[in-house]
């Protein structure tokens, strides 16, 4: 195992982590501000990917496809917030889970009805294809590098918005005491719609970015959603900082676990058994991480309340 391979794997872990952050940020904000468990967040990720694939097929432009993913996912977010989600804020978590699960089914079948059962094609643009040479002789995918940079830029933007802007102050105030900021004259319902749309747009954006190197198909959001839940539980529900740290931890643990555990077991076992055991343990690694974190910090690393 060479150092170059190790660094490449760390980059892969970072890339996975920042994409998870885009998903988890919306989920944790919605939970923190509105107290809502939104299972349909994965559907918004899918909406973004399908909007991007359809736009790319119609116009041939990847940039337009990314813009479409933001717009359509935000629009879908506003739509379901106004029609369904708004009625769930005051109800208990199981009602929310039931209603948002119904939304998953509606989105999945609606998408199948519109686009069919076969996966769609979405590819990265030529100017992001191929590899770049980094220092120390590392060869890395240009697109993945771009994903890391874009994800970090979005994270910085979010931190700035939450920390420095008026809307960010209101979001933080909403997390702390909903009734009080409503009493102070803030239009809380508009704030909720905005937060939901923001989370939806980030999820859709992640869907479009990832769709370009994976497959755009019905049901693509649910596996990512489960990981995003793991991230926000580790990070502390409601905390953007927690979501960021949690996402990077999960991304690195998963990637390095898949890579290092089989190598580790090969020291003590014959190769094919080591590969099977290592692979099995690697697929548990992030859940072990979650259990470990919860053991010492039962409410996550950066619980806000």
């Amino acid at each position: 195992m060479s150092l170059v391979l190790f660094i490449e794997q760390v980059l892969n872990g970072l890339q996975f982590g920042v994409m998870l952050f885009l998903m988890a940020a919306g989920l944790t904000l919605v939970f923190g501000v509105m107290g809502l468990i939104n299972l349909a967040h994965g559907s918004l990720y899918m909406v973004g990917a399908f909007a991007a694939a359809a736009t790319a097929a119609a116009t041939g432009s990847f940039v337009l496809a990314l813009i479409a993913s933001l717009v359509f996912a935000a629009f879908a977010g506003v739509l379901i917030e106004v029609l369904v989600i708004r009625r769930l804020y005051e109800r208990d978590h199981l009602d929310q889970v039931l209603a948002t699960f119904a939304l998953i089914l509606i989105f999945s079948e609606g998408t199948r009805w519109l686009f069919g059962s076969f996966p769609l094609f979405l590819d990265k643009p030529d100017w992001l294809s191929g590899t770049v040479g980094l220092p120390f002789g590392i060869v890395y995918s240009r697109y993945r590098l771009a994903m890391i940079l874009v994800g970090l830029a979005v994270a910085v933007g979010l931190f700035w918005m939450i920390a420095k802007t008026r809307i960010g102050i209101r979001i933080r105030a909403g997390e702390n005491d909903r009734e009080m900021i409503a009493a102070l004259g803030v239009n809380i319902s508009l704030l909720h719609t905005f937060v939901f749309a923001l989370g939806a747009a980030l999820a859709g954006f992640a869907g479009a970015l990832i769709g370009a190197i994976q497959s755009v198909q019905v049901g693509m959001g649910e596996p990512v959603l489960i990981l995003a839940f793991v991230v926000i539980v580790i990070g502390g529900i409601g905390s953007i900082k927690g979501a960021f740290v949690g996402a990077l931890l999960v991304g690195l643990t998963d990637t390095l676990g898949r890579f290092l555990l089989p190598v580790l077991f090969r020291l003590a076992m014959e190769p094919s058994a080591a590969n099977a055991v290592g692979a099995s343990l690697a697929s548990m690694s992030i859940y072990l991480l979650m259990a470990g974190v919860l053991l010492f910090r039962p409410r996550g690393l950066f619980a806000s309340q």
Binding site: G42, H93, Q96, F101, G219, F229
Partner: peptide
């Protein structure tokens, strides 16, 4: 009140994951 959410959450999340595992339909 501050504790209500964390205590209710694991049950809801468990239910969510169970539902997600069965996503797909019709």
């Amino acid at each position: 009140k501050p504790f209500a959410k964390p205590f209710a959450l694991p049950a809801s999340l468990a239910a969510s994951l169970a539902l997600l595992a069965s996503a797909g339909l019709g």
